[in-house]
Each structure stands twice: as C-alpha cells, then as structure tokens.
C-alpha cells in the first residue's frame, strides 16, 4: 500500500514534468512485468517442446537403425559385433508389469485408507495419520531404493517369497508366476512392492480429496434410510466420486511407470522376460539410469528412444488422469 500512499501524496507537489516522468516509469514497469510473466508462462510450453524435440533428435539414429522392430525385439546386446542388437520388449514388459502389480497392491490399500480417514477416523487422529501417509511421498526415491536393496529385498527373499512359492507350488499357471527357481533379493516383485509403497500416498491424498467433495446431505440421506457405513461408501461415495478416483489412480500409475531410482536398485537390471514375478527384470527408467552414463553411439541413442517411449506413455496416462480430474472439478464448481 505504501507506494499508493506515496504516489497520492507526491503528485500535488511535484512539477508537471516530474509527474509525467513518474507515470511513464510506472507504465513502463507495468509493461515489462506483464511481458515477463507472459514469457515465463510460455516457457512452460517451451520446456515441453524442448523435451520432445531433444528426445526425438537423440533417438533418431536408433529409430533409423531399428525401426518398428525395436518394439518387438526381446534381445538387448549393446556389445554385439559388428552391429548391436537392441530391443525394447524386455524393459517395456518390466515397466508395465511392475506398475501393474504395484497398482494391484496400492489401489485397495489407498482407497481403504481414504475410507478410514473420511468415514471412521476420530477427528483428532485424522491429521497425524494423513501426515504420516503423505510424508511417504516426501521421501526421496533413492532412499526407497536403498531401503529396498538393504532391508526389504533380503527380508522378502528370506521370509515371504519362499512361503508364497510353496503355497502356489501345486496350482497350474500360478506356480509359474510364483516360481521359486530364482528367488533373490533383486526381483520384479520386490520392485513392485517398493513402487506400491511410493504411490500409496498419491492415491490416498487424491481419494481423500475427492471423497470430501461428496455433499454431506447425500450421505446423511443414505444413513437416514438405514444404510450401514459400508453401504454408504459403496452406494453413495464411490459412485459419486468415480471419475476422481480413477483420475487419482491414473496419476499414481503415471508416477509408477516413470519411477527410476527406487526400482533401479532392486529390480536386478536383467533384460530377460520371465514368467515368474520373483525373477529379476528391468524397466525403461532403470535401464536408462544404469546404462546411460557408460553408453555411446547407437546404444545411447537406443536408450534415448526408450526414454521417448516412456515419455509418450506417461504423457498419455497423465493427460487422461488430469482430464478426468478436471471433469470432476468442473462438476464440483457447477
């Protein structure tokens, strides 16, 4: 406010010229500031364009060399002479399967926690519980990777996975998914579990947010005709917030697909496709993180092409998520 006061007081006393100069300065400052904000805003679009452009430029040699074959080749042999054979199928498979298993674990847990927080939790506990879950999102991913590598991986391999293997040993199909041939600290399943822990706070936070958009009248009406808590959740809350919940789940999926450091340490970085979830595998981001620094030529270009594929994949998943969340916002606003 002080500038306003000064201007108001100053104007009567200064000479006309000086006044004109002050106003000109203000008008100029105004234009410069407006322009600066606009340039900064367009910079966001420029960053996106820059990402896409630099990935395409970097990936071009690999695109030319491998073409569509890249997507369906299982083999990854960067050192092969005279020409390396590089295919994206194994990392794509690892990325999709690890994210899928992570979602399978995290979605029920995340929704369960959100239901607990919005319907059951005593008011006094609500904040600390939410904080404990949301701080999980604040822990850097390399810490998850380290913890998974030193603590969770060995624990799972020694205590949990052998019993899972034994439990499914005599059931066809399942015994190949839960095959015990290669149980180790580093596996697809371990990576999926770490991913599930990492995306849990995203699902919970968005689910709590969208659950709280349900008008209390609707819930009260359902309780009023004798519904149990579960019936209210299942028949009122979930149908009302379906779009938002799916949006939140997609957002978490976008995170899981691109997660790097947590996965790199614990997935084993093996370019083999195995039916067993206890076998080591790799993901797109893990392959880039572990090989890029020492790569060159066609190998490096192929890694950038993998990055481009990952970016396109997450872009569509995230765009769909945002689109759904926007629809919910519009409805809440109307």
């Amino acid at each position: 406010m002080s500038t306003a006061d000064e201007t108001m007081q100053a104007i009567p006393h200064v000479a006309k010229q000086q006044r004109a100069r002050v106003l000109l300065g203000m008008a100029l400052g105004d234009k410069v500031f407006a322009l600066a904000t606009q340039v900064a805003a367009y910079l966001v679009l420029l960053v996106l364009a820059g990402i896409i452009l630099s990935l395409i430029v970097g990936a071009w040699p690999a695109m030319k060399a491998f073409g569509f074959e890249f997507l369906i080749t299982r083999r990854w042999a960067p050192q092969l002479e005279p020409e390396p054979v590089l295919g994206a199928l194994a990392p794509i498979y690892g990325t999709l399967v690890s994210s899928f298993i992570a979602m399978l674990i995290a979605v029920p847990f995340g929704l369960g926690i959100a239901i607990f927080l919005t319907e059951l939790c005593p008011h006094r506990l609500r904040k600390p519980v939410r904080l404990a879950i949301e701080l999980l999102a604040g822990i850097p991913s390399i810490i998850y990777g380290m913890w998974g590598f030193f603590v969770l991986g060995p624990f799972l391999a020694n205590y949990i996975e052998p019993s899972l293997v034994a439990a499914f040993a005599n059931i066809p199909v399942l015994n190949s998914i839960f095959s015990g041939e290669m149980v180790s600290n580093l596996s697809l399943f371990n990576a999926s579990l770490i991913l599930a822990i990492m995306i849990l706070p995203f699902i919970t936070a968005i689910a709590v947010d969208v659950f709280s958009t349900v008008p209390p009248v609707l819930k009260e009406a359902a309780y009023g005709i004798g519904c149990t808590t579960w019936e209210v959740v299942n028949n009122v809350v979930l149908p009302f917030t379906r779009v938002g919940v799916v949006g939140g789940v997609m957002l978490a999926l976008g995170r899981a697909l691109g997660e790097t450091m947590a996965v790199t340490f614990i997935i084993g970085n093996s370019f083999k496709i195995s039916g067993s979830i206890f076998a080591p595998s790799t993901t797109i981001s893990a392959a880039i993180a572990s090989e890029f620094a020492e790569s060159s030529g066609l190998h490096q270009s192929a890694l950038i092409l993998l990055g481009l594929l990952l970016f396109v994949l997450t872009f569509f998943v995230l765009a769909t998520a945002r689109f759904m969340l926007m629809r919910l916002e519009k409805r809440a606003g109307a």
């Binding site: 805003a41 966001v44 990402i51 990935l55 880039i288 990952l310 872009f315 995230l318 765009a319 945002r322």
Partner: peptide, 28 residues
C-alpha cells in the same frame, strides 16, 4: 485461451518422470 493449455501441460510436467528431464538436459 492459452491459460488452460499451459496449466494442463504444467500439471503433466509436474508428474513427468524425472529421468526424462535428465535425458533432456543431457541433450540440451
């Protein structure tokens, strides 16, 4: 009219994989 577009793109960049940012800066 550009604002919703920028907001949308910004929201996507917000959750874009950070390793992609690394590849971008490596190239750029």
């Amino acid at each position: 009219k550009v604002t919703p577009v920028i907001r949308f793109i910004n929201d996507i960049l917000l959750s874009a994989p950070s390793i992609i940012i690394g590849l971008f800066i490596y190239g750029a």
